[in-house]
Nucleic acid binder design. Structure first.
Length: 583
DNA sequence: TATGCGCGCGCG
DNA sequence: AAAGCGCGCGCGCATA
């Protein structure tokens, strides 16, 4: 098999599909070739025990195309120091399919921090396909836009071997060889779909997210370990007690548990929280719930512990993987860390502090703004607590007499009815999420009063219903122009998409603007470490905390202002040593 | 022994 | 009736 042909020999071959670089001299030659270019197409192949993790895996090849035949740099041979090539790569526009992945590795291994624009063809594909089930991997995109069949199977081959196989080098070269064509096709499609604006937003955001993912979030591992041990012991104790009552079943098996409960005379169809609440034997239900709570806490603590590297957790925030434009977060998911003691485990290292800011009641405010509901807008502008206001309206009492329970009910009412919840749904939701008992008749009354009071909201729902029914409506858009393609057929999912997407999506657009602005304004030594839908967490030096707090609030207000000038937004924030305590 | 799926549940 | 929406994850369990 032909291997590692010397650079010069290959270059003289006119039909060469790639130019392989295995030495520092070769690296300099690449730098010379690229010095005059005003952009390049990149791809990396990785290997190792975990080839997808920038801290555990390694880069084998860096493939670069800038006009001519692709260069394939064997970084295992040259070392990770990119030399002059690094500074060139950092300042010119780069085009990558799944840039977050490649840049994560280049950031972690080669210290590359791109300053120039990063165009990600996967992001472009995702923006075009939002709402559909079309795949956005490179092979699918090439097939769809250029009709090209990429030879597959080698992506998962061993890229750590002594010598790279001819097939592997061909594969690496092919990955970038078609990127210019793909970019052209995607650019045309993006313009045709008027997705330029949101593409610009996502493009500007990419380097910010590379930094967040590379920075990680410091944690108190000892405290996490304590929680795991204590909650784990509680769970096994609770499990023993319940087993004595229900027979030697596995408490973690819904199937076994359901059968045991039915055998014990309980009238339940499922073992979820809602079903347990309705059981005659409340003590039995409480025992099961106590087991589940402890089990969940112990599991979350353990999941987080497994992801700690050198005292920090490096999650992957992904700005373009949801159908609305919100972030997702995985491995681990920091967007569902239980409130309470688990959040106390996310900390600022010695000499540093956390700044935590969030948009106050963002979805209600955004809905009021989008629906132009005058009553809601007026309430927000007057600084009235909207949950209390809604409680007063639906219960027909003065705001001054609204109790804590009334307010709980109103939260369920606001959040549920906003997105089209039925009276029956409201009964279930109020009970399950807020512990409020409600008859269906009562729920109907509340629903009627709610929409009579918030007439703008009702008109907006009716408009969305008409659009859902229309054969001329194909998508829902956010204010930044993000497009979600609607499903065909059943009108209900079309309706909920039309209501939900502009609200959630525009809120996401706004916080993305804020992240970009904030990233550009933060002082030396301050880093964004997390973003949780309506919240931004920044770690900074103690002496900078007050300044960073003001800066973060301002950036969040500015981010919203650029997009939805008259949305009655407010930002709350605080400073603390832990995520849970910074309020 | 690996993979896919549904359940149940954490968050906004 | 897919009659609130948006996620990711660990588990049990069925299947290959």
């Amino acid at each position: 098999m032909e291997l590692k042909t010397p650079v010069r020999a290959v270059r003289e071959e006119s039909k060469a599909r790639y130019r392989l670089v295995t030495s520092r001299d070769g690296l300099n030659e690449v730098a010379q070739d690229l010095a005059g270019k005003n952009g390049m197409f990149l791809d990396v192949e990785t290997y190792g025990q975990n080839a997808l993790d920038p801290r555990l895996g390694d880069i084998r090849t860096l493939t670069i195309k800038a006009g001519g035949i692709p260069w394939i740099i064997d970084l295992k041979a040259t070392g990770y120091d990119l030399g002059p090539l690094g500074s060139i790569m950092a300042r010119v526009p780069v085009v990558i399919h799944n840039a977050l992945f490649d840049l994560g590795f280049l950031r972690a291994k080669c210290g590359l921090i791109p300053q120039g624009p990063i165009l990600c063809t996967m992001v472009m594909s995702r923006l075009l396909n939002l709402g559909t089930n079309n795949a956005n991997d490179l092979a699918s995109a090439l097939k769809h836009h250029l009709g090209i069949d990429l030879p597959k199977g080698l992506a998962k081959s061993d890229w750590g071997g002594m010598l790279l196989l001819d097939e592997q080098l061909d594969y690496a070269a092919a990955d970038v060889a078609h990127l210019p064509g793909l970019l052209k096709a995607l650019t045309t499609a993006t313009k045709a779909a008027t997705l330029n604006g949101v593409l610009r937003l996502e493009t500007d955001l990419l380097p910010v997210i590379v930094e967040i993912n590379a920075t990680g979030f410091a944690v108190d591992t000892a405290r996490l370990g304590d929680i795991k041990a204590r909650a784990g012991a509680q769970a096994s104790e609770a499990s023993k007690v319940m087993q004595a009552r229900l027979g030697g079943i596995n408490m973690a098996s819904p199937k076994q548990l359901l059968k045991a409960l039915q055998d014990a005379g309980q009238n339940v169809e499922s073992t979820d929280n809602e079903a347990l609440q309705s059981m005659k034997d409340a003590e039995l239900a409480a025992g099961i719930i106590a087991f589940r709570d402890a089990q969940k806490l112990a599991q979350q603590a353990e999941t987080l512990l497994k992801k700690v590297h050198n005292g920090r957790i490096y999650a992957t925030f992904d700005p373009t993987s949801t159908r609305t434009g919100r972030f997702s977060c995985k491995e681990p998911n920091l967007q569902n860390v239980a409130r309470g003691e688990l959040r106390e485990c996310f900390i600022a290292p010695p000499g540093r502090l956390l700044v935590v800011c969030d948009y106050s009641q963002i979805e209600l405010r955004m809905a009021a703004f989008i629906a132009k509901d005058e009553r809601m807008l007026a309430a927000f502008k007057a600084g009235i607590d909207l949950h209390a206001a809604t409680a007063a309206i639906v219960l027909g009492k003065p705001v001054g007499e609204v109790t804590k329970d009334d307010r709980q009910l109103a939260k369920a009412v606001n959040f549920g009815l906003l997105y089209g919840q039925s009276a029956r749904g409201l009964v279930r939701y109020a009970k399950a999420s807020y512990g409020v008992e409600l008859s269906e008749k009562r729920a109907h009354e509340i629903r009627d009063r709610f929409f009579r009071a918030y007439a703008g909201l009702q008109r907006w729902h009716r408009r969305c219903m008409d659009l859902a029914n229309s054969h001329e409506t194909f998508d829902a858009r956010t204010l930044a122009g993000r497009r979600r393609i609607l499903p065909e057929g059943n009108m209900w999912p079309r309706f909920t998409d039309l209501v939900n997407t502009p609200v959630q999506g525009t809120s996401a657009d706004a916080i993305k603007h804020a992240l970009i602005l904030l990233h550009g304004r933060l002082p030396e030594g301050a880093h964004i470490v997390a973003t949780i839908h309506d919240e931004i967490v920044v770690e900074c030096r103690e002496q900078d905390a007050e300044e960073v707090l003001a800066m973060t609030k301002t950036a969040m207000l500015d981010g919203m202002k650029q997009l939805a000038k008259d949305c009655p937004v407010e930002v709350e924030g605080g400073i603390g040593k832990t995520w849970g305590s910074a309020k």
